[in-house]
Write a protein that binds this DNA or RNA. Sequence first.
DNA 1: GTGAAAGCGCTAACAG
DNA 2: CTGTTAGCGCTTTCAC
Lengths: 341, 341
Amino acid sequence: MAGITEVAERAGVSTATVSRALSGNGHVSETTRERVRVAASELGYVVSSNASGLATGRTRNVGVVIPFLNRWFFASVLEGAESALLSHGYDLTLYNLGGSREERRSVFEHFLLRKRVDAVIAISLELTPSEVTRLINLRKPIVGVGGPLLGVRTLSIDDIEVARLATEHLLALGHRSIAHIGGAVDSETDFHMPTNRRAGYEAALEAFGVPIDPQLFGAADFTIEGGYIAAKQLFGNPRKRPTALFAASDEMAIGAILAARDMGLHVPDDISVIGVDDHQLAAFFGLTTVAQYPQRQGQLAVEILMDQLHPGRPGPLTVNTPLKYDLIVRESTARPDARRH
Amino acid sequence: MAGITEVAERAGVSTATVSRALSGNGHVSETTRERVRVAASELGYVVSSNASGLATGRTRNVGVVIPFLNRWFFASVLEGAESALLSHGYDLTLYNLGGSREERRSVFEHFLLRKRVDAVIAISLELTPSEVTRLINLRKPIVGVGGPLLGVRTLSIDDIEVARLATEHLLALGHRSIAHIGGAVDSETDFHMPTNRRAGYEAALEAFGVPIDPQLFGAADFTIEGGYIAAKQLFGNPRKRPTALFAASDEMAIGAILAARDMGLHVPDDISVIGVDDHQLAAFFGLTTVAQYPQRQGQLAVEILMDQLHPGRPGPLTVNTPLKYDLIVRESTARPDARRH
DNA sequence: GTGAAAGCGCTAACAG
DNA sequence: CTGTTAGCGCTTTCAC
């Protein structure tokens, strides 16, 4: 319960000096600074963020808006952001949009306006135009992760290239009948990731002179279960079962592997499967995938915000490097004719 | 950017009245209140939480301390807590302990002390005594979820009974050779959940007069992969392969199902499997399980805190009911002799 | 029922 | 390099 005044008394200085000593703003002699530090720690003093925030207008707190908590990608970005914020002395206020429409509205109309956050990180949000407006009107630094956000700097892997790489891996192995499981086409939202991954898949096929067969596309919801269902449809077609499958996420790819097993198909002998993400479970399932690094993405988002929040801060300025992704070849892909049985 | 003064001017009242009208504290005539509301909403005014917090000492913000973000149980509790807090007008500040020791220390020594939170929810934390002390010293309402926290009110299912129920289900089906996969014994931490579930399993066996066989126990880390590895050990023993398995979590149970498949064993004909949780994927794998409801647990934790934070608040007082759990029978358990092949 | 005014605990000019 | 002082934007007695 100790306040700045007690620290000042104990250190024999004014409150202003305590403030300066502890925050690092302004010049304080090293001896004084040390004396203040000691006094503060002896009293267990920690600045009140309310008072400090009120005086400075800054809160050392950033809001993270996220559509799901229980999915690997989102939780990983959050994890990366949380730890990076912590290391900068920032708190993270979490807004999950997974609930009701009402909750969602109140986040945008009420919570984000409380001046409690200095900046916001928006993770893979599919926002309505009015929500985007509200976000922009905050006039605070914003960075998006994993999804395009109109008018906002966004961190995202090049989905077209990633899909292209995955598809080319299959083509290079010799596959010509390659199915794709991706997101359902939904013109309402402007969330382009599924569309981009499909475009990359098609571009790779076209570049190889392989015709695109709409029957080799299955729509799913990016879950294991969704991938399982979609894969069963594709694998069950006796007339033209594909020899390979590119799933737009590892979770769907895992669903597809399970579907194949249940249908008596061997992966990769009967069917090769590749995903995107390098999900927690990818290695366990021997899944070939194009890895992306969501934790690092969350961390990077924080660094970008810090650059904006503390313009002169030391350390390398965050460059606008494209996000890293890597092809990781495991056991779920092989040449189509490499049958072992 | 509108402040309380502008709202006051626009409504033709004093700032004091605006404050009263909007917060509901103190008496304001209905007409005035309405006029203030209109003025506020026209100006897009939202109280600054810093200023309000400084004046009142309350922040409308609760801290949630969590050990993992990327596991179903934890993410679900968090989800439930977030949405409940939102509906009470509270923000949620997230502290993830998954990172380095350094991060963990700073959470306890620095962040939680900033007076930024009115209360804290601690999810399944294995805390050192000094961390517990720090928590208690905050002198703020604290509630634990999913793990015993010395000296703190904790919400947790009755792990012994849950395990007992699961085991009894197998016994009732006629199984007598029942394996168990649970947590490794770790005397350092006082996190009793795995120990309790094992105790419940043993109690059920004993009550049935079935001897406990230490060789039928496997330790794992509560992940799918861990369950897979442990199950392979148990199922691979040609001399005494169990006919049933009780896994202390659904994720491990799913790993066991996958292990069985890989070993050519049929579930449930060759081996019955039961878990605990009713995980996202449980239905997909046809897993019989004892469901618990982490979202509701998170929500309940919030209600308890609200009771403490707003003593006279309307609505039913949160009673100290034991947490609900239900046996959900799916396809992964059957009689041991019901062989179909 | 409403207004005036004194803080809440800290920071940031401005002096010195 | 350090002290003095005036707020930051709201809430809350205390009067009226």
